[in-house]
Design a protein around this nucleic acid. Structure first.
Lengths: 209, 209
DNA sequence: AGCGCCCTCATACATTGGTATAGTCGGGCC
DNA sequence: GGCCCGACTATACCAATGTATGAGGGCGCT
């Protein structure tokens, strides 16, 4: 069962926060309120599909600055920006920074809901991607250095013989490491191993030709 | 030698077109002028790194509509939007549709140049990607139906034996088709074939696990 | 009919890949 | 020292893959 989705509301206007909170809950979305970016950052973030509704003009840190800040912190939540006194350059900057949408106050409830729901869908998809990638990365960490080397060369398409020559090993040793990599990565075919290697970027792009 | 870059200027204001043309040429960019989207569409487009500078408000077809229209026509040139009387929703819509930038008239020359140069850089990268993909797709077209089927199953990671069973063939026949696919696709390893198959989307995502 | 292309299959052989068993060597750890 | 683990290697054997040669049938086109 997919957990309930969550909207983080970041705005210094308490009455607006309350209104948004009510709006989101009316469609079954859970919600949290924060008066500033700092407050949001210090709060706990549940690992559920969610997004941030962020006012552009805020005391302390502006919404646009916050976007960059969140990226640096590795917080990849979709952001819906809103503002009461915005201009086009501001909206363009926000959208370039990857905002899901940019709304001007006052906005229609439906517009906000559309934006938030789209943002949450995007986050769901990203979570899915990440979950898989994380699994693969976790398994990759269990590989010994040699196994990683061999895996990389295998993913380049080299034959055991060539790998052995490259690493100054006997072919049989390569086979051992190769087999270990397949087992540890839980790859049931070479095709799978190649895809995992690509997902993990263990093969220099220039050598994928 | 990379050919000279080109900027397509689409605006109904002839004096602005002339000013832009002069601006672009001053930094070594070639340029073409069009008074409407239709005029641009009927003109010849050179296969060089380029972008479109497009007015949002135009007689005939608006710049925003044009963005969608260009996509449908398979014209994937980066678009820099500009407008004299724009609002935030308009700019958001434009950016969502993939515009490289959105400028308001009057704009500073440097801002326009920055946007156009970034757009052309993006197009260069996209051209590079496309050139390779096009090569692969061209080779893929030379495959017979059976060879494509076999290639898809190979890219899923299946063994010849399993493929033979799936397609109700003898294993030897599968080997023939597989070998033919490798030759025609110019893949020197299974890893390469897998990557080409992925680039061409010949394997349902669900089966790449 | 003749030609070419695709699809099919078989036999045979060579190469490559995968696994098991067994042994050596070195480093970190209790 | 004793122990585990990673790395390395060898022999042996089996499975999978690749290629060559040969051959038959169907289908469309000239």
């Amino acid at each position: 069962m997919e957990p309930a989705s969550l909207v983080h509301i970041v705005d210094d206007d308490g009455s607006l926060r309350a209104a948004l909170d009510s709006l989101f809950r009316s469609v079954g979305l859970d919600s949290r309120q924060y008066a500033s970016v700092q407050e949001f950052l210090s709060a706990e973030r549940l690992d559920v599909p969610s997004c941030i509704v962020l006012d552009v003009r805020l005391p302390g840190m502006s919404g646009l600055d916050a976007q960059g800040h969140l990226k640096e912190l590795g917080i990849h939540l979709p952001v819906v920006l809103m503002t009461g006194h915005g201009d086009i350059p501001m909206s363009v900057r926000g959208m370039k920074a990857g905002a899901e949408d940019f709304l001007t106050k006052p906005f229609r409830d439906q517009d906000m809901l559309d934006a938030v729901l789209a943002a949450i869908e995007r986050h769901k998809a990203a979570r899915h991607e990440n979950a898989h990638l994380h699994d693969v990365a976790t398994r990759y960490e269990t590989l010994s250095p040699r196994e990683r080397q061999v895996m990389a060369l295998v993913a380049e398409g080299k034959m055991n013989k060539q790998i052995a020559w490259d690493l100054q090993l006997s072919e049989i040793t390569v086979k051992i490491h190769r087999g270990a990599a397949m087992r540890k990565m839980d790859a049931r075919s070479l095709a799978e191993l190649v895809r995992m290697a690509d997902a993990l970027n263990v093969v220099p792009a220039a050598r994928q030709a």
